[in-house]
Design a binder for these strands. Structure first.
Length: 188
DNA sequence: AGGATGATGGACT
DNA sequence: GTCCATCATCCTA
């Protein structure tokens, strides 16, 4: 059976695309240092239909990247301190996106660890993901499906077990089970 | 192991 | 002025 490509997956609605993104690799070559992360935790945000989405009230300068072609990176500053990364989803012109909340570093761990100030929790949170991969505001708008630096997505092995839960850290639309998680292989 | 809190920038009422 | 799609640290047990 044929495995759908990332572009095909990301063109769909985010609550369907998000779980299919689990197991894929987000690769960074920021600063010439390669860090590869297997995505293990994501959340769907569905634009004008979703009060918790940054795109709920339509296109703005900040959320522009979510309206661009699927696979465009949307980076925003969170609480004035951290950065968080999404990939846009759905057809161009629609403000849907998928927040990359967590992953497992499978290449370039020493680089990630240095960026994380020597800590061992490298990428178990959206702000930590950006720190580990060196993602900053300048990367907003990067197209992730061309396999080119500084950042790109690659197909990975689809996980066997996926759990969905309510989204984390939001105050609106808490009932929607649009957070999707899969286990990371046992290690500390 | 879990709850509270400060840091800090930008979007929005 | 208020509200965050967060993280690290500092408590209380």
């Amino acid at each position: 059976m044929r495995i759908a490509g990332l572009e095909e997956i990301l063109t769909g609605p985010p609550e369907e695309a998000a779980p299919l993104l689990l197991g894929s690799h987000l690769v960074s070559a920021v600063g010439g240092e390669v860090v590869r992360m297997r995505i293990t935790e994501v959340e769907a945000y569905k634009g004008s239909e979703d009060p918790a989405s940054h795109a709920y009230r339509g296109l703005t300068e900040r959320n522009r990247s979510m309206f661009e072609r699927p696979g465009t990176l949307y980076v925003y500053r969170s609480y004035g301190i951290h950065h968080c990364a999404n990939t846009s989803a759905g057809p161009e012109g629609v403000g849907w996106g998928i927040l990359i909340r967590g992953g497992q570093i499978i290449e370039g761990e020493h680089v990630a660890r240095r960026r994380r100030a020597g800590r061992s929790d490298l990428a178990d949170g959206p702000g930590k993901v950006c720190q580990a991969l060196g993602i900053v505001g300048d990367h907003d708008g990067t197209y992730l499906l061309d396999g080119e630096p500084p950042l790109w997505l690659e197909h990975g092995e689809r996980p066997e077990l996926i759990v969905s839960t309510p989204r984390i850290g939001i105050s609106k639309a808490r009932e929607l089970p649009w957070r999707f998680v899969t286990a990371i292989s046992a290690n500390a």
